[in-house]
């Protein structure tokens, strides 16, 4: 993995062609995905969790939890490397360099892209 670079904070979408490989793992109970990989801009390691919305009771017998359908398409993640990148506004909720990018979600039955 490349060294982290303390780049200036910039909210920019990175070029998909240059994005490094990321891993997308679904939790054993299928309720959230964990995306991990390096930031294409600053090379800091970023781990992001995306949960299935649970704002509503289960509809099954006794309110049993239905398994959420698998996610398809892409997950948008942004740099959360935790380094104090210069020029980052104090009011910004970001904890990284500001970059964001799309990570394709692998097919449920297929191989990792």
């Amino acid at each position: 993995m490349a060294e982290h670079r303390l780049t200036h904070f910039r909210e920019v979408q990175t070029d998909p062609a240059t994005n490094p490989a990321a891993t997308v793992e679904r939790s054993p109970d299928g309720r959230w995905y964990t995306v991990s990989g390096a930031c294409p801009t600053c090379h800091g390691r970023t781990v992001s969790r995306v949960a299935h919305g649970v704002l509503g009771p289960g509809k099954g017998l006794w309110g049993a939890r239905p398994s959420p359908p698998p996610l398809t398409g892409v997950l948008t993640v942004y740099c959360m490397c935790g380094f104090p990148h210069p020029a980052r506004p104090d009011s910004s909720p970001d904890t990284g360099c500001g970059a964001f990018w799309d990570v394709p979600v692998p097919d449920p039955g297929g191989a990792q892209p």
């Binding site: 909210e11 920019v12 979408q13 992001s48 995306v50 948008t76 993640v77 942004y78 909720p93 964001f100």
Partner: peptide
Amino acid sequence: MSDLQKKRLAQLGQ
């Protein structure tokens, strides 16, 4: 071109 709204929605999701 950066789709900043996409990032904002991702942040909203988090």
